Simulated scan of single mutants.
Amino acid sequence: MSLELLHKPDMSALTSLGIGGKARVLARVGDENGLDELARFIEKEGPEVIAIGEGSNMLAGDGELNLALIQIRRSRRAGVTVSENIVRTPADIRLPGLLSVLIKMGLSGMEGLAGIPGSVGGAIAMNAGSYGTEISGTVKRVRLWTPGKGLFWKNASEMDWGYRHFDARTGEFTLVWEAELRLFPSSEEKVRTAVKETFSKKKATQPVTEKSAGCVFKNPEGFSAGKLLDEAGFRGRRLGGMAFSEMHANFLVNTGGGNAAQALELMDLARETVAERSGITLNPEVIILP
């Protein structure tokens, strides 16, 4: 099916945090033909449209959400191709899957992204990064789709990149369809070792196996959000089924039965306390869906 519409999708099943109410509708795009139907869908649904990817960095509100979600789910899975160290990858491939391919090909440059669970498209949309690596450092160009222009390629240098920030400069709703990444030749053993080391480090310091949306706050310039939260007493702080992780204070986790009201109340309390103690205002890294 080129475009599948699911009415009243459950956000708790669509996000890694496992909380949230029901959106208005979810449009799943199965192939390029479905993009024509998607343009008509967006025209009908209006401005409350958002691309969701794997939902690994989203906090969805409780109750009925006036949102139309878009997700790429190719009915015929397009694979990753490699030519002269340029990797072409569909947006709906998950980062762990892409890293597995890069290990086998002995291509280096993305090892620092090990342990990030989202899709390639979501990683580009957030300029995902960790341990000094950002996906923008590898992007050669991105194939974008907009309702007005359809599919087209755009070079990385023509777009805005920043800390957890990406702007395709299209002026309209934009979907990442696929990307070309420029990597560096290495060996399967070296890349595998680097990926394992990165993941082991994260597993030892971050709740990678729990229901989480990753880092909940951005690091203020020159400071660590996790350290500020730790010093303010929020490591392990709980409210109902939501808690700041015992392993890393900047990770909000659903310990079971959590909801968005609890998550947002904890976040507000954390921001107020940190601001009172240090004068620093923490800004959310997680995308909050009203």
Rank of each mutant, 00 (worst) to 15 (best):
115 G>Q: 01
149 K>L: 14
99 L>W: 07
285 E>L: 02
89 T>W: 02
123 A>S: 12
43 E>G: 13
72 I>Y: 02
195 V>N: 02
104 K>V: 01
61 G>E: 04
239 L>C: 06
257 G>N: 03
53 G>I: 07
208 V>A: 11
187 S>M: 03
218 K>H: 08
52 I>W: 06
80 V>C: 10
132 G>N: 03
62 D>V: 06
146 T>S: 07
66 N>L: 09
137 G>A: 11
257 G>W: 04
7 H>W: 15
6 L>H: 14
285 E>P: 00
243 A>V: 02
79 G>Y: 05
156 A>H: 12
221 E>M: 12
51 A>E: 10
37 E>W: 13
10 D>R: 13
160 D>R: 15
127 N>G: 10
16 S>G: 09
153 W>T: 05
62 D>I: 06
63 G>T: 09
97 G>I: 03
112 G>K: 07
91 A>V: 09
44 K>F: 13
121 G>S: 08
207 P>I: 09
250 N>Q: 03
163 Y>N: 14
97 G>V: 03
247 M>L: 15
142 V>L: 09
165 H>V: 06
149 K>C: 10
151 L>N: 11
38 L>V: 12
164 R>C: 00
227 K>T: 13
249 A>E: 01
253 V>Q: 04
230 D>T: 08
132 G>I: 03
98 L>D: 01
196 K>Q: 14
274 V>F: 08
11 M>Q: 04
108 S>V: 03
246 E>K: 14
128 A>M: 11
21 G>M: 06
57 N>E: 06
60 A>V: 04
184 F>W: 13
17 L>Q: 06
171 G>H: 02
21 G>Y: 08
192 R>A: 15
85 N>V: 07
141 R>L: 02
14 L>D: 07
244 F>N: 06
170 T>D: 07
6 L>P: 00
255 T>Y: 00
31 D>E: 11
206 Q>T: 11
